[in-house]
């Protein structure tokens, strides 16, 4: 299976929040507390073992190898057939209202079947999901609808870049297949996953940066335990 991934290059990032706002605009996400698919937390200036660091944690759904959010979905299971856009190859899986796509590795939500129970949001160690309670599937007695980053799936399928990548003013965000050189090279030269001893979900957003900035990022923002 090929896997989409994203590099966030903190040597280029200036923590300007353009990514977060482009995402809000593209997907029409209301500005309510906790309602966001994409966020920036400015970190520091703080001491690290490599000197002072003043950096940022630009976060989004990690589209994990082993997503914690998928197995907890209590929605009725259905059979769903996935198609690889290029080859037309299909694969049928039994899924609840959220799944990991077998052809591009992205984690997606079926909004028409989401109950809004929030189990997936609670399960995510990165807090990448939220439940929009302004809307709900009333026919299912839903309380709201879960939402999160889709890696801009509709845009990517139309040949565009994710909105956050397109708007990034310093080209600090790089999106593509995990095995493509533009991504793989970064991983080779030391881009990290925000994982810890307890949290090993295989996130596919990688952070590259000066050791002091990665230290501050890890220290402040890497989840230390599963929720």
């Amino acid at each position: 299976m090929r896997q989409y991934a994203m590099i966030i290059d903190l040597t280029r990032c200036v923590g300007c929040h353009a990514c977060a706002l482009a995402c809000r605009a593209e997907w029409d996400i209301p500005a309510q507390d906790g309602y966001r698919r994409n966020w920036v937390r400015n970190l520091g200036p703080a001491k690290t073992s490599h000197g002072l660091s003043f950096t940022a944690y630009p976060g989004l759904c990690n589209h994990c190898d082993k997503p914690a959010c998928v197995p907890v979905c209590p929605a009725d299971k259905i059979k769903k057939t996935f198609t690889e856009p290029k080859t037309g190859k299909t694969k049928t899986m039994t899924v609840a209202a959220t799944w990991k796509n077998p052809f591009d590795g992205t984690v997606q939500i079926d909004k028409t079947r989401c109950l809004g129970c929030g189990a997936c949001a609670d399960a995510c160690p990165y807090g990448a999901r939220y439940v929009n309670t302004n809307i709900a599937n009333k026919n299912l007695d839903g309380d709201g609808i879960a939402d999160k980053c889709t890696f801009c799936k509709p845009r990517v399928e139309a040949g565009l870049r994710p909105a956050c990548v397109q708007t990034c003013i310093t080209d600090a965000r790089i999106f593509g297949w995990r095995d493509e050189p533009k991504i793989a090279d970064y991983i080779k030269k030391g881009a990290i996953r925000m994982e810890s001893a307890q949290v090993q979900t295989g996130p596919n957003v990688y952070y590259y940066g000066h050791p002091k900035d990665l230290e501050l990022l890890t220290k402040t923002s890497t989840p230390q335990e599963m929720p």
Binding site: C16, A18, A20, A25, T167, I169
Partner: peptide
């Protein structure tokens, strides 16, 4: 108006706009 993006033909910013530019709406 639903979104603002950088002008792809712009030699200075391309399709990029900053946080404020994104929020003109």
């Amino acid at each position: 108006l639903i979104k603002i993006e950088g002008n792809p033909k712009s030699p200075v910013n391309g399709q990029r706009v900053c946080a404020r530019g994104n929020s003109g709406i």
